[in-house]
Design a binder for these strands. Structure first.
Length: 264
DNA sequence: ATACCTGTTTCCCG
DNA sequence: CCGGGAAACAGGTA
């Protein structure tokens, strides 16, 4: 589920735990989300510290703890956060449970493609500071987009949009939404996009990122009614704008929904 | 049983 | 060394 706005929303679900001490850390003994991270270290460091801050950047999350620990979290394909009551018992797919006096903060991830990290230090970890500019900030510019399109000119634009080095937070449904709105075929090679369409592409990237954060990011749920989002998930539906059939096919390794009538 | 999946990393190729 | 594509990761769901 989680791309840009869903990650922001999931992160906000742990807000009730801000300012409260972590009393117990329960780590799934097998889950792959720990990767290089030692479960024992995570437990020793977090127990007794307050959850002090929570923020997201694209698909990345960073939780600050009062004692100078920073827990990084990526939700992968099926990760999600929730708040349960203080007596909650970890379930089969609960990768991590942080128990506080009045609630339990839960990170659940059945497919275990998510990832947990821990850094220590006064300031935020270096990897966090080095994340690329958000699509909604002033440093994300038309010049940057042009450079990326040129550098990866042989890459289908759909595949390029999913590259987190340039479009942090962009996920599969967002990329389809952007290309549908910009009127660009997903398989079009990035280097072949006309100058006029480059401008449109830039505007739609920003529009979709802002619109998603404004709806999904704030309240969970779905984007506005007139988004491709609502018809992209199954075969045989019509393009809301042209009335012509939508196509669903694998492009850039991912299921892609697009409107041949509108996207050239 | 089969196919599919909102993400990333690794491996292999040219 | 690089860019690009496919496979792998693991389990739920249709």
């Amino acid at each position: 589920m989680p791309e840009l706005a869903e990650v922001a929303y999931a992160c906000s679900l742990w807000n009730p735990g801000l300012g409260s001490v972590v009393e117990e850390v329960i780590c799934h003994p097998k889950s792959r989300v720990y990767r290089e991270l030692d479960r024992k270290v995570l437990e020793e460091e977090l127990v007794g510290e307050k959850l002090a801050s929570a923020e997201t950047h694209g698909k990345q999350m960073l939780f600050g703890l009062s004692g100078g620990n920073w827990m990084g979290l990526h939700l992968g394909m099926t990760g999600w956060l929730s708040v349960e009551d203080e007596n909650y018992e970890a379930g089969k797919h609960d990768a991590l449970v942080l128990r506080q006096s009045k609630r339990a903060l839960v990170f659940r991830d059945p497919r275990q493609f998510g990832k947990l990290t821990l850094d220590q230090g006064k300031g935020k970890p270096e990897w966090w500071e080095l994340l690329p500019p958000l699509m909604t900030c002033p440093e994300f510019t038309m010049e940057l987009l042009k450079k990326v399109l040129k550098r990866h000119g042989r890459q289908p634009i759909k595949a390029l949009l999913l590259d987190q080095r340039y479009f942090p937070g962009m996920g599969n449904w967002m990329a389809d939404e952007v290309l549908w709105r910009a009127g660009i075929q997903p398989a079009k090679l990035s280097g072949k996009i006309e100058t006029s369409k480059q401008k449109l592409l830039f505007e739609k990237i920003v529009f979709v990122a802002l619109g998603a954060m404004d709806s999904v990011g704030k309240f969970g749920g779905d984007p506005p009614e007139d988004w491709l989002f609502h018809v992209r998930w199954k075969d045989g539906l019509l393009c809301p704008n042209s009335g012509e059939p939508l196509v669903r096919e694998k492009i850039g390794g991912r299921t892609t929904c697009w409107s041949p009538a509108l996207q050239k």
